[in-house]
Design a protein around this nucleic acid. Structure first.
Length: 259
DNA sequence: ATGGTAGGTTCCCTA
């Protein structure tokens, strides 16, 4: 079972790129972020034409997450529990072939001297609580994929000093990310790869892609029961090099069939 | 110290 995460930066603007990626990479499950549209305007015909079902949690203009799957999607939950006032579409969760999967678009948090940063930290606290109190006790396989907007450590950014005060690198953000890992959750790519300087996002500005100056912020987090079945995890740089590319590139993992 | 790019909306915001 191949599960991929991809921040597409607008599903409408990116549709040709997303369709060719689905055909080339052929994930069984695709976790999308920043679709930037409402469910009614999601390009369901084109995507179902490639054999995918979908569950969409969207809003106008900003944010928005979706789950695509070649096999049935069950028990969909939209929105991260813990704050009924939060209207931003950043979390969707469902069961596919017995695996609980989520597509996460974690708040960016910049600039850090505005209310955006405490919103990010509060959102992360809610995620920590939900994973600890609800998902972990289920003792089932889960894969939480998405744009976490967290650089786990200085090996995952091209210029650690220059980024030290950015919300993606701040110790408050990293501590909350680690709080999830400390529950026995596995970050799939880092567990299987030791190299430094591997990225999943390159800013559109200042030739960051051409200079390979990026950050690794798109992650797949696995429960112990899913990590038992982890056989591969890779960053697919091909989509980032195309015309009209997203500023993120997909990350995927392969989970073996249940014993 | 600033600006560079992309995508959305609406005469500016988010990343």
């Amino acid at each position: 079972m191949k599960i991929a995460t991809f921040n597409v930066n607008s599903i409408k603007a990116r549709l040709p790129r997303v369709l060719e990626w689905l055909e080339d990479a052929a994930p069984d499950v695709a976790l999308l972020q920043e679709i930037k549209t409402v469910p009614e305007d999601f390009p369901s015909l084109e995507i179902s034409g490639l054999g995918y079902e979908m569950a969409v949690h969207g809003q106008k203009s900003y944010n928005g997450v979706a789950i695509l799957s070649r096999t049935p999607i069950e028990d969909v939950v939209m929105g991260l529990p813990g704050d009924d006032e939060d209207t931003q579409a950043r979390y969707i969760e469902a069961t596919i072939q017995g695996v609980r999967v989520a597509s996460i678009y974690l708040p960016n948090g910049n600039p850090t001297d505005t209310d955006k940063f405490p919103y990010k930290l509060d959102w992360m606290d809610r995620l920590v609580t939900y994973v600890r109190d609800t998902l972990i006790p289920q003792e089932r396989p889960f894969v939480l994929g998405g744009d976490y907007n967290v650089v786990p450590n200085d090996d995952d950014v091209y210029d650690p000093e220059g980024w030290a005060d950015d919300a993606l690198c701040r110790p408050e953000s990293r501590a909350r990310f680690r709080a999830i890992l400390n529950m026995g959750v596995t970050e799939a790519w880092r567990t299987l790869h030791k190299e430094i300087g591997a990225y999943s996002f390159w800013d559109y500005q200042r030739g960051r892609w051409q200079r390979d100056e990026g950050v690794r912020i798109d992650h797949l987090l696995l429960s112990p029961q899913a990590a038992d079945r982890l056989v591969a995890c890779e960053i697919d740089r091909v989509p980032r090099g195309k015309e009209k590319a997203s500023d993120h590139t997909p990350v995927w993992c392969e989970i073996s069939d249940a014993a």
